[in-house]
């Protein structure tokens, strides 16, 4: 564990907590894309299948349970909790996210490390996570400005994988084994997709106004 990876995990945890805070306390999911949340639930479900077969550390298992639990509970809140569901922007959140799932699955079947069930699904989860934010970014552009909590949620979610890239660089130079190039590329694509959001975030958000 190095400082970059710990910072990345904490940033990721913070993004999930910010979203849960928003949904649970003010019972609102305005500006949040349910489709992105559904994609993230699939990402964690397919990435953490090894939670039962391989034990890495208490921290690792604990964080996996947190991410699994939070992503599914956010989807549940947005779908079935009456008060929260009412604030969901169904008309605007129309990105065909199932069109993202199939190409990622095909790509994982074609390009992977090892052709085993767990490995292909793990690779699929990497590809899917790289594009999972798209419905949220599209919703963002449609709803124009968003509230601070949603802006911070997206900022933290985008930042965590950027910190992971620093972690991969650090591990490359300091450890005998390497991180697979598929992980590198998926992580880079994912972080680059946030580029224009980061641009507006710093321009507007730091300037004291909401993100537009």
């Amino acid at each position: 564990m190095n400082i970059f990876r710990l910072a990345g995990d904490m940033t990721h945890l913070a993004s999930v907590l910010v979203l849960l805070l928003k949904i649970h306390t003010i019972k609102s999911c305005a500006g949040v894309s349910l489709r992105t949340q559904e994609l993230y639930a699939i990402v964690f479900a397919t990435r953490y299948l090894d939670i039962f077969t391989s034990f890495v550390s208490v921290y690792n298992t604990f964080m996996k349970l947190v991410f699994l639990g939070s992503s599914f509970s956010i989807v549940w809140y947005m779908r079935y909790h009456k008060a929260v569901h009412r604030t969901y922007d169904r008309e605007q959140d129309t990105f065909r996210h199932w069109f993202l799932v199939l190409p990622c699955l095909v790509l994982a079947l074609l390009i992977h490390e090892k052709f085993t069930f767990l490995e292909v699904l793990w690779t699929f989860s990497l590809y899917l996570e790289a594009v999972a934010i798209l419905p949220q970014l599209v919703l963002l552009q449609r709803t124009r400005n968003i509230d601070n909590l949603t802006g911070q949620y997206i900022f933290l979610l985008g930042g965590y994988r950027g910190l992971y890239i620093l972690n991969w660089i650090y591990r490359y130079f300091t450890e005998p084994h390497f991180v697979h190039w598929i992980t590198w590329i998926a992580g880079l694509v994912q972080t680059l997709l946030y580029a224009d959001f980061f641009y507006y975030y710093f321009l507007r958000f730091i300037g004291g106004r909401g993100v537009e």
Partner: peptide, 10 residues
């Protein structure tokens, strides 16, 4: 030659 890739990340 680096060893096999790691799988200890989230």
């Amino acid at each position: 030659e680096k060893e096999t890739p790691i799988k200890d990340e989230l």
